[in-house]
Design a protein around this nucleic acid. Structure first.
Lengths: 244, 244
DNA sequence: CTAGGAAGGATTTTCGAAAGAATCAATCTT
DNA sequence: AAGATTGATTCTTTCGAAAATCCTTCCTAG
């Protein structure tokens, strides 16, 4: 079966049109998912032979994918000692969160100044979609499946992204994406578990307040709410980290 | 000569102690230097075969180095179309500069709050070293050699780095480094050429004012001066870009 | 009994070739 | 003559093996 190298992924993808996925892209996507999803524990070495077996790829695309992930601080590497999953630490999480606050508040500031009708509509739509999915899950007793959790996560991402999408700076959006992925890793345990004892938190309300202030173009208030939103999450994550 | 693969670089480096350089590291360093130095023109495709001949390396380390450079926005790539030098544009430069202002002003804020005696000493030393080199060059009529230009550039970097080194955030420092490299590429033509007609600019004075405000812990003033410093450079670069 | 060092195995890094995709030019069709 | 098609060429991407390095263990000498 030597003829399925690039083709396999191209076929898998030809539904979407002209975008071509190389094996590097699939390796990147899969590794990222598995690291964020906790399949590999923080600090764990990522032996190339193991990855080769798991993903059915050769060294080259794996190394390249790992390099990309390193630039997002999801993996670490030492010169002749290979790669490993970036370790967990409260300090690192707070640094990521505070950097995210800095970046996204600036982006939100610019978006509020530049946003048009389409921008507002997209925010409202994303908020609604996220709420639908969240509420549907809240009424059930069974824990969400992996796909459902992923869907919520995507909607959550899209809401926050919709807020700042029109900020006009590719670099700020890029940074926002990377920091989102980095913090997602830390949120994961919090999400699958329940909220730590007696901390009633209405995330949907927080989102609504951020949205309202943004659409009302109340810059200072929107920024304040957004920052508080991220820091509140970080505080909870920190608590659950220390609980180990 | 099959025995000089990793050894060549290890030997070259064993003066500094235990750090080992892989071929990826050297490829990264050399490519970065050449791209920033303008050896490869903006937009120019970076054919692997050409790079292979130029640097005497195989594809693997080159690809990995190019990937790293891509995360710093010094090179671009399209899925099956290879790599190319990131193109020049005023918009991209301004985005990099404004992001740098955001990041470094925050870092400076924190450094001013956290800095101790050693921090102050290092700033003064870096400022002095930079001034020495600059003045030595200013008294001459011959244009600076490549090494001299590189030395100035390094001193300049070290001064700006000394200001924020104690900010406490690895991410902010990392971003600062990347954005420095990115903007260095744009400054290069301005540096080697003369200042555009009749724009008297005393960079040394600007540096001194930033340093003074910083050491006096006048946060607001230091930040304002730093931002103005970067934006002034950007304005000059923009003018020389439009002059083409 | 401990420190130093060498052998062996595990792992990363690098290489060169082979496979797949894009590009360009020439040819054929309408 | 314009557009589509085919073929040759160039280039990127991927692979698997070889080389270099790290790490562990075992041995020897003090």
């Amino acid at each position: 079966m030597p003829s399925r190298r690039l083709t396999a992924t191209a076929v898998e993808n030809d539904r979407t049109g002209s975008e071509t996925l190389t094996l590097v892209d699939t390796a990147y996507r899969d590794l990222r998912r598995d690291i964020i999803g906790g399949v590999f524990a923080p600090g764990q070495p990522l032996r190339l032979e193991v990855l080769r077996a798991r993903y059915g790829l050769s060294f080259s695309p794996l190394r390249e994918a790992l390099n990309r992930l390193q630039s997002e601080r999801l993996v670490q590497s030492a010169p002749l000692r290979g790669f490993s999953v970036a370790p967990f630490s409260a300090a690192q999480m707070w640094d990521a969160v505070e950097t995210r606050v800095l970046v996204e508040c600036e982006a939100l500031r610019r978006a509020i100044a530049a946003g048009d009708d389409a921008w507002e509509a997209r925010i409202v739509a994303a908020f609604h979609a996220l709420n639908l999915k969240t509420k549907r899950l809240a009424t059930r007793t069974t824990p969400p499946s992996a796909e459902e959790a992923q869907e919520i996560e995507t909607s959550h991402y899209e809401f926050h992204r919709a807020l700042i999408d029109v900020c006009g700076s590719p670099r700020l959006l890029d940074l926002s994406d990377k920091l989102y992925a980095e913090t997602e890793r830390y949120r994961q345990p919090t999400l699958t578990g329940r909220t730590p004892k007696g901390t009633p938190r209405d995330v949907a309300l927080e989102h609504r307040e951020i949205m309202d202030a943004t659409l009302a173009r109340e810059e200072a208030r929107a920024i304040e709410l957004l920052a508080a939103h991220y820091r509140r999450t970080a505080t909870l994550v920190e608590a659950s980290l220390e609980a180990e």
